[in-house]
């Protein structure tokens, strides 16, 4: 039953997105740059362990890698739109810069890894 796996992915994504934007800005506001670095350590480590090592986000071997970054990306935009009344379209230029140009270069360097 595929829907169970998609629901598992959905749940992992929601937890990861909420954890990132609940903790990261507060840590950085309180402790500055070291707080941000520490936030990466405590959030991403446990979220990676849950989502990718234990496999809450579904990633069958040999298929395309779906990273929890998708969840963090979507959560960052949704969070700012709901919380700060941000205009979603204002994210577009940065999103395009992040997404399009560089990715054509990357596959030439083959890391030969299947677990991230």
């Amino acid at each position: 039953m595929n829907w169970k796996k998609h629901f598992s992915t959905f749940t992992g994504a929601a937890i990861c997105g909420a954890a990132c934007f609940a903790i990261w800005p507060e840590m950085w506001k309180s402790y500055g740059i070291m707080g941000g670095w520490l936030a990466a350590t405590i959030i991403i480590s446990i979220m990676w362990y849950m989502n990718h090592w234990l496999g809450v986000i579904e990633n069958p071997p040999g298929m395309l890698w779906a990273d929890q970054g998708f969840a963090i990306s979507a959560a960052g935009i949704a969070w700012a739109v709901v919380r700060f009344d941000a205009v979603p379209t204002q994210a577009l230029p940065t999103m395009i810069c992040c997404a399009v140009v560089v990715k054509q270069v990357l596959p030439r360097y083959n890391g030969q890894s299947d677990k991230k």
Partner: peptide
């Protein structure tokens, strides 16, 4: 990574580029 003016633009995280990069990486593999 550029962010629009605070309070008027949503946050674009570097998770965006990591996720799309890994996806494309495995696609081209």
């Amino acid at each position: 990574i550029y962010q629009g003016f605070k309070g008027a633009a949503p946050w674009v995280d570097m998770g965006t580029c990591i996720a799309i990069g890994l996806w494309c990486h495995s696609l081209f593999l």
